[in-house]
Write a protein that binds this DNA or RNA. Structure first.
Lengths: 276, 276
DNA sequence: GGCAAAATGGAATGTTTATTCCACTACTCT
DNA sequence: AGAGTAGTGGAATAAACATTCCATTTTGCC
């Protein structure tokens, strides 16, 4: 008998809740078990759903789900929901005051930074949708899909962008290679006609990347580019250049727009190749 | 005159909503502006809050917030909330809607893909703000700031995340090293007590990364983790684990939430180090 | 400085949602 | 097999909530 009384305290954290679910799962009636196992897997839904929605998702009557909440130790659904919602509202204290438009608090908390970067991410994605024309993107995708091998180059900040593309291409079976040092392929004939070079560089532009793009282009190989400024010399050597603008937070930029764009591009290239 | 009539359609996606906010910000009265600017920064709260809670957070009366929703084009708060909640309840509309959409337009345009990925990015960023608590993030930032050296490991899809962190740390003068193969540092004593290991792995989890985290933790070195599921074994060996969920497009995920989070983390770590 | 138009916040209203109640069903134990 | 007990779902009730209305205040303009 490990349940001396029916007076259970309500779980106070998500982990307690999960423990409780596992603990009581055995000695629960059928319907309650359904609730428990679904709920365990979809905890996050509670925060944004009503009892009826939950009950429907589980496949039981609302009153049953209600009884389930109580069997777990809560007074009702609302109390359980509060627990799941509370972690969402953690950020609130920072902004709780009525002076919400006073955005000049120089206190640097990590949470605040995250909120700022998330905001910058939203802006970058918006700008991305507005500035990149889909026909240019289509031309690039088609050009890359027809290539024998896609060579990817990007250094420093751009490296994580191309390494992501490299991973995607590999996973999808598209012949591609990521070049860690531009010098390695320059002049060695690794990039042949029929190939395509996709070069990524952000201001201040990498000389190495620019030189490689120029040399490759001069040898008659198609070059596509991705950068963050129309002033990038890449526009001279590349057949098409994509420009994305990343919003910054205290001088730092995340790579939301660039990774989103290149991910979409990679998926599209793979889809085009499979079609032919 | 870009506002020909007061009959605005309700935004149907997060990006439309953000655009609308930017668009109408200027010609809004003071209180409405407060609503707009707070809401823009804390979109994620809407899904789990009531009008009164939102109004209080902004510092206005509930009726004002109500009017704000209508000024943006919604019929009321509930409609706006539905939009923000829809991303959580993905499991229901996703299968039906997405499959229908896909079969309807057999034409896979790259531009369409980009729009999908951008929207998924918005959702991922919202979810990020929802699921990561700022105190956990703070503890991790502090832990990493105190480390002698920060070791970064992440393979396959996670590699581009850690390589970005590595670049940021290098640029900001924080001692850090990116490990390309987990095996290289395992058992070689490269990771010493006083160091910190930051491990990133997404489902299906990399054995190599998991083993390294476990071994490192067993030797008394602090391990922090970043993954996309609570079921990740990393939670057992790491002192703290961050969980981010990325929205997917036809089975593919971009890395918006993960890179945004790690960028914020890296900047914060650097700031904390400079303070001491 | 006074008038009109717009904006604001509190209180009233109608709707949705949680919660409880109870009649009914399906077990279990003898 | 039959009485008793636990389980279930629909319908009734109560609470929370979104939304609207209106009196009051503020703002912009002459």
């Amino acid at each position: 008998m490990n349940k001396p009384a029916e007076v259970l305290k309500a779980p106070e954290s998500v982990s307690e809740l999960l423990e409780r679910l596992d603990d009581r799962l055995e000695d629960m009636p059928k319907r309650l078990k359904q609730c428990a196992s679904f709920t365990r897997r979809h905890l996050h839904l509670i925060a944004v759903s009503t009892v009826s929605e939950m009950a429907q998702a589980v496949g039981v009557a609302p009153s049953v789900y209600m009884r389930f909440c109580q069997a777990v130790g809560f007074s009702g659904y609302s109390e359980m929901q509060d627990l799941l919602r509370s972690k969402f509202t953690d950020f609130r204290p920072t902004y709780d005051t009525r002076l919400a438009n006073l955005s000049e608090e120089r206190e640097l908390s990590t949470g605040r930074l995250l909120a700022d970067f998330a905001e910058a991410g939203h802006k970058s994605l918006l700008s991305l949708s507005n500035t990149v024309t889909s026909d240019r993107l289509d031309r690039i995708a088609r050009g890359m899909a027809e290539a024998r091998v896609i060579h990817l180059v990007g250094l420093r900040r751009a490296f994580s962008v191309v390494s992501n593309m490299g991973y995607l291409f590999e996973k999808m079976g598209v012949p591609a290679s990521v070049h860690f040092k531009a010098g390695m392929i320059e002049g060695h004939g690794a990039v042949l006609p029929g190939d395509v070079l996709f070069a990524v560089t952000f201001a201040p532009f990498s000389d190495e990347t620019l030189r490689l793009a120029k040399a490759t282009s001069a040898r008659g190989v198609t070059v596509f580019g991705l950068t963050d400024s129309g002033a990038c010399p890449l526009v001279e050597s590349a057949r098409e250049v994509l420009i994305v603008r990343e919003d910054e937070v205290i001088g730092f930029r995340a790579l939301n727009a660039a990774t989103t764009l290149t991910t979409a591009l990679a998926v599209s290239v793979s889809a085009l190749r499979q079609r032919s």
